[in-house]
């Protein structure tokens, strides 16, 4: 392995790293909002919307992200919607993640004790207040392990973005290998940067998990 090659490629990887991180986090943020909205719909059994949400979840959980991205990137323009590769990546990741986040949050919502809701009702809180202040925070706390697993999974899924010519880590690595055949160095940097991205998430995640776990409030 040539250290000079590594140093030379480092800035390129750095840029790709930032782009990947940006798409990743925006997508995850979007997936979280989608997840909260859909879990809300499922939890309160809102008619019609509930069926749509269920169909959405099945559709996105049972198709690969790559296929979803192709559909968004090449299919939507045919239908008259033009979106950039970047928003396409964020949207794709958000929609895929949203279906997983929904399931994670739904189980958390169902784990909230009915008596907690009754006690909030007795304090004359309305449905919206109870959901926002009582049910959701407790649901997020108990859904933390699957939510974190989803975050890590989604960050890793960003590696397929190269397919819609986003200059992410995977794209950069493949590009450089294609140009200069420094395969070892390129793949080495690829692994290093993915670990750099995911290790802090795993570590911070498990700290966060301990902090908010239902039984652990106040520890």
């Amino acid at each position: 392995m040539d250290i000079n090659v590594l140093l030379e490629y480092l800035p390129l990887y750095g840029e790709a790293f930032l782009l990947t991180l940006r798409i990743g986090w925006l997508g995850i943020l979007l997936s979280f909002f989608i997840g909260v909205a859909c879990a809300f719909i499922l939890y309160f059994r809102i008619p019609i919307l509930r069926t749509i949400v269920k169909a959405y979840i099945e559709l996105f959980r049972n198709t690969p992200l790559l296929v979803q991205l192709f559909f968004l990137y090449f299919g939507l323009p045919k239908l008259g919607f033009h979106i950039s590769a970047l928003s396409c990546g964020v949207l794709g990741l958000g929609l895929l993640g949203g279906s997983y986040m929904t399931e994670a949050l739904r189980s958390g919502l169902e784990a909230v004790e009915p008596m907690q809701i009754q006690s909030a009702l007795a304090l004359s809180m309305n449905k919206r207040q109870i959901f926002a202040h009582i049910i959701l925070p407790q649901a997020i706390a108990s859904s933390m392990p699957p939510i974190l697993a989803n975050v890590i999974f989604l960050l890793k899924e960003t590696s397929v973005f190269s397919a819609i010519s986003l200059m992410d880590l995977m794209f950069t690595a493949k590009d450089l290998i294609g140009l200069y055949y420094k395969t070892t160095e390129c793949l080495f940097l690829l692994v290093v940067f993915y670990i750099l991205m995911l290790l802090p998430v795993s570590v911070l995640g498990s700290i966060l998990e301990k902090k908010v776990r239902y039984a652990g409030f106040g520890e």
Binding site: S119, A122, I134
Partner: peptide
């Protein structure tokens, strides 16, 4: 609105753990 005038205390306390 009417419930505001009625306070209730439960057997299992039901404080909000978070």
């Amino acid at each position: 609105k009417v419930r505001e005038k009625i306070g209730m205390v439960f057997q299992s306390y039901e404080l909000f753990p978070h």
